[in-house]
Design a protein around this nucleic acid. Structure first.
Lengths: 222, 222
DNA sequence: AGCCAGGTTAAGGAACGCTTAAGGTCCGAG
DNA sequence: CTCGGACCTTAAGCGTTCCTTAACCTGGCT
């Protein structure tokens, strides 16, 4: 397995320090200072990601969501704010750990190791759910062997459900992960996306079930 | 499989608080106040362990070592000391997380979930009680191999009883956990839900027993 | 028998989700 | 720069499902 670690950190001194300690520990750190530069990196190219929340360019929390949509790679959050609601939000979005500045490099290293020690999930580039095939890498969906033209948000929603196939996923979790969080005013937005996804799914629409009072669920057969 | 969590914590107030929040989140906390009492418990009986480092009797770090020798169960460390060398030591010994007091229960919960998210997420989320199968993740219930269409509240009530299978659960506890507590005007609401659950359970209705003057209990066989 | 906890039923209204239609924003083409 | 298309969001109407309440009935306990 690779030992590359992505470090997204705008503070130069801290970035150097962490980079060095990662190197000394035998990792291969890839340090990016700007959030926008980190947007389009592929999370699966790394064995772990260390992410500062307070960044120029793209906000750290958005990067986390982005990475989680594509990958199961362990993500450690760095933050200057010892804010509980931030912590909870990050952890719920799938972060594996949350470290508050200031910290000693040794602690960070120890936490990275703790994350890597956990059993890894099979990384699946593609997934089949009944008649629906999803290629996360190509961002491509086929239903009954027919390619679907999904919009970005539609794909993210469907991909999230596919990763948790069979499980009921709450509306909040979907909105939080796949939609722009700025628009929390209307709770109907997700409905519209789901409605359009179903129409595009055609015959397979029945596989996208509503779980009343909770959210949605993608099942093998309708 | 199990949703039991071992909590080793000598502070009574904190222990109560954490116990409560774990219960509310659907876990089954087992609270032990003395390190010596925790020595001979089997870590594999729990899905996670929350361990205070500063304990009477056996020192927390020793317990951690002990548990790690026997099991891979996730261990979260609680500590009053924000001491880096302690953190590093604990994490190197195989702890999965290290939380410094004071903390909010929500943060601890989020971290517990972050730990549990990694391993076998799939298989641990079901419970069988006699002829009743409950899949918490899918929010799906089957009775005698037939899927039941339960409403959100009905599912929550039955799920709560299933998690505590065999033991009597008080009406108050159920109402508190599964119903909107705003409506404390009528205490008959729960009856109605139970009545409907029983009807939907069909043959298995007898497994949902009334404990007169207390509440209800879900048993293996009618 | 009498009391009280629990069971059952029916009905209203609240909550929820689906759909259609109408802006509004962003971005690339002309 | 302007136009048009793709996309996301919001609003509103509508049907459905669900929760609660009230009223009445059953059954256990003393």
């Amino acid at each position: 397995m690779s030992n590359r670690i992505l470090l997204v950190e705008d503070d130069e001194a801290l970035g150097n320090q962490v980079s060095d300690s990662l190197s000394r520990a035998g990792f291969d750190p890839h340090w990016v200072a700007d959030g926008d530069d980190a947007r389009d990196l592929r999370p699966d190219d790394y064995c772990a990601i260390i992410l500062d929340l307070m960044l120029p360019g793209t906000y750290g929390m958005d990067l986390l969501k982005r990475y989680r949509l594509k990958s199961e790679v362990p993500v450690l959050i760095l933050s200057a704010r010892d804010d509980t609601s931030d912590k909870i939000r990050a952890l719920k979005l799938g972060a594996d750990d949350y470290v508050t500045k200031p910290f000693f490099p040794e602690e960070l290293l120890a936490r990275v190791h703790a994350c890597l020690r956990r059993p890894n999930l099979v990384d699946t580039e593609r997934v089949a759910v009944g008649a629906i095939y999803i290629d996360f890498d190509r961002r491509e969906v086929r239903s009954h062997d027919e390619a679907l033209a999904l919009t970005p948000v539609e794909f993210d929603v469907l991909a999230l459900l596919a990763r948790r196939k069979g499980s009921a996923v709450s509306r909040d979790a979907i909105v939080d992960a796949a939609l722009d969080e700025a628009h929390e005013g209307s709770r109907r937005t997700l409905d519209v996306h789901v409605s359009r996804i179903r129409r595009k799914l055609g015959q397979a629409a029945g596989q996208l079930e509503t779980v009343w009072g909770i959210g949605y669920r993608l099942v093998e057969a309708s």
